[in-house]
């Protein structure tokens, strides 16, 4: 609670995510039934949470995620199209109407790596760069879920993803991965 007696934004986030201990949760439960200002602030937390959920679920944003998260999506019944590439590999790929997510699983030598950056190039030009992406050193994979919505709209084209390890000594290439994307139905 803040000095004014209202719950702070972080406390409300923790409350929503079931992170408070039982006593603090019960106190806040009671407070929220009395305090409309805190209730409206909780509405904001819930609306942001719902917005993030909806954005991801409908494929409006991309995300680098751990393998365990992909497994959860799969266990939840999401239709996944999975491409697994080793450094230097290329793949013919697409997204079909029934696919919920496309999973690009990029293998890389990640032991001892502290930071990974990624760039996407198309027709020899850098289109996007991603700094400090999450990766799984144990399994040696960087897993990207591209924004399915944007992927569906893309024309048939080829793009290259390049992963680099970054440390005090500079950059070291981990691998390049080539995607020959074919637009479904076109």
């Amino acid at each position: 609670m803040t000095n004014a007696g209202h719950a702070g934004f972080d406390t409300l986030v923790a409350y929503w995510l079931d992170e408070l201990d039982a006593e603090a949760e019960s106190r806040l439960d009671g407070h929220l039934l009395e305090c409309e200002a805190c209730g409206r602030a909780l509405d904001e937390v819930m609306a942001l949470a719902a917005g993030v959920r909806e954005a991801f679920t409908r494929g409006a944003v991309h995300a680098f995620v751990p393998e365990s998260f992909v497994k959860r999506l799969e266990a939840g019944g999401a239709a996944l199209r999975v491409y697994r590439l080793a450094p230097g590999d290329s793949v013919h790929c697409t997204i079909l109407p029934a696919d919920r997510f496309v999973v690009s699983r990029l293998e890389a030598p990640l032991a001892g790596v502290r930071r990974v950056d990624a760039t996407v190039e198309a027709q020899g030009q850098e289109r996007q760069s991603f700094r400090d992406v999450p990766f799984d050193a144990a399994s040696g994979t960087v897993t990207l879920l591209p924004a399915a919505e944007a992927l569906r709209a893309m024309p048939t084209h080829t793009e290259r993803v390049r992963l680099v390890a970054v440390d005090e000594g500079g950059e070291r290439e981990l691998g390049t991965y080539t995607f020959h994307h074919a637009r479904h139905g076109g």
Binding site: L48, R53, T57, V61, F64, F69, R72
Partner: peptide
């Protein structure tokens, strides 16, 4: 959300996709 740094977006997606 798309404009956030990668790690921040990943944390929000992992958190709020199933409220973890």
């Amino acid at each position: 959300l798309q404009a956030l740094p990668e790690r921040e977006r990943a944390v929000l997606v992992l958190t709020f996709h199933e409220d973890r």
